[in-house]
């Protein structure tokens, strides 16, 4: 067993080594894979805040991932086609500026999280799982049946959005943006979970009656966490559109919700780096087992069962000691 902080640093070094290896070996595909891991880790980090620290199993995070993705896709496609989003009562143009798109994606998916959370957080357990799933499916079918942005076929964006001073079409530059955002997100989450708010959130997970009895409204705490969570997952969605230069309703489907959940559980719930480890393992399995057999997900399921049955705290729980401060 090693200390969790050391383990986290090793994770960062391993993650960074992949795109550098890609540069040296001139294998841009490695860089793309590493970028994918980083983006999915951000999505998982968002979910981890409610699932891990808050104890709410959201099966609807695809909604926020997809909404973030569509915000990015819609804004960019309007800008690239020189066609304003609305013309009346005032003109709103699209944009290809990441510095506008990313905060906007977070704002809009956070807003949706607020609406969905307000309705869902009155329930718990299986009901919460089902109602979040239902909302995500509503968004999914809405995207399918909305022809303006490609409907079922999805929406192509032929250029990545811009970032001042960087050529985002260069894989390594784009990786760097995503990586910095991941570190930033993890830093924010670590501050939140160790703050007064984090203490209340983790307490409400275990004993909401007690939390109410000391004068704190548990639902308010959980709703705020849900909004932050949705915004972070939305950020990941926006980056994912940029990575693929394409967004389709499939990012909104329940498979996506399930996959984000798998990252968190595989890596370790309520562990800061859990989603990163989970996402990395997922992509590694997809690449290597996927090359050997079409049914690689059987082995993913197998590993997931082993982790859930025998490793409390996921992969990180097996390897690293939990950091406690008090």
């Amino acid at each position: 067993m090693i200390k969790e902080n050391y383990f986290n640093i090793i994770c960062i070094i391993l993650l960074l080594s992949v795109p550098f290896l890609g540069l040296i070996l001139d294998e841009p595909y490695y860089i793309t894979l590493a970028t994918k891991v980083v983006i999915l880790a951000i999505a998982g980090a968002g979910l981890n805040l409610v699932l891990g620290y808050g104890g709410f199993v959201s099966f609807g995070h695809a909604a926020f991932f997809g909404i973030g993705g569509y915000v990015s896709g819609i804004l960019a496609s309007h800008a690239l086609n020189y066609y304003p989003i609305i013309e009346w009562p005032f003109i709103i143009e699209g944009t290809t500026q990441m510095l506008i798109i990313l905060p906007l994606a977070m704002l809009i998916s956070g807003g949706f999280a607020f609406l969905i959370g307000m309705l869902c957080l009155r329930t718990s357990g299986v009901y919460f799982i089902m109602i979040t799933l239902a909302f995500a499916q509503m968004v999914y079918y809405f995207a399918i049946s909305w022809p303006a942005y490609g409907g079922e076929d999805g929406l192509s964006v032929y250029l990545r959005n811009n970032f001042p001073g960087l050529n985002t079409m260069d894989g390594f530059s784009f990786f760097s943006i995503c990586f910095v955002l991941l570190i930033f997100v993890l830093f924010i989450i670590s501050r939140i979970v160790n703050s007064n708010f984090g203490l209340a959130l983790q307490s409400a997970k275990q004993n909401p009656e007690r939390v109410a009895a000391v004068g704190i409204e548990p639902i308010k705490v959980q709703l705020i966490a849900f909004v932050i969570s949705g915004a972070i997952t939305g950020l990941a969605g926006a980056l994912y559109t940029d990575l693929n230069r394409f967004v389709s309703p499939s990012v909104l489907s329940w498979h996506t919700s399930g996959e984000i959940m798998v990252f968190v559980i595989l890596g370790g719930t309520a562990r800061l780096f859990g989603p990163l480890v989970g996402a990395a393992l997922f992509i590694i399995l997809e690449q290597f087992l996927g090359g050997i057999t079409e049914n690689w997900q059987f082995w993913l399921g197998f590993i997931l069962i082993i982790v859930v049955l025998f490793a409390k705290g996921g992969i990180i729980g097996m390897i690293a000691k939990e950091r406690r401060n008090g």
Binding site: R191, I192, S195, N196, F197, G198, L199, A200, Q202, S203, Q206, N207, E209, R210, V211, A213, V214, G215, I216, V221, I224, R324, G326
Partner: peptide, 27 residues
């Protein structure tokens, strides 16, 4: 009725922050 997964000290801190209305500090 206590919060089992946090320390004794943190349990009391939770009550203090509830009383002082300091729950919504995030940093």
């Amino acid at each position: 009725s206590i919060i089992p997964s946090i320390t004794v000290l943190e349990n009391v801190i939770l009550a203090i922050q509830g009383n002082l209305g300091q729950t919504f500090k995030f940093w």
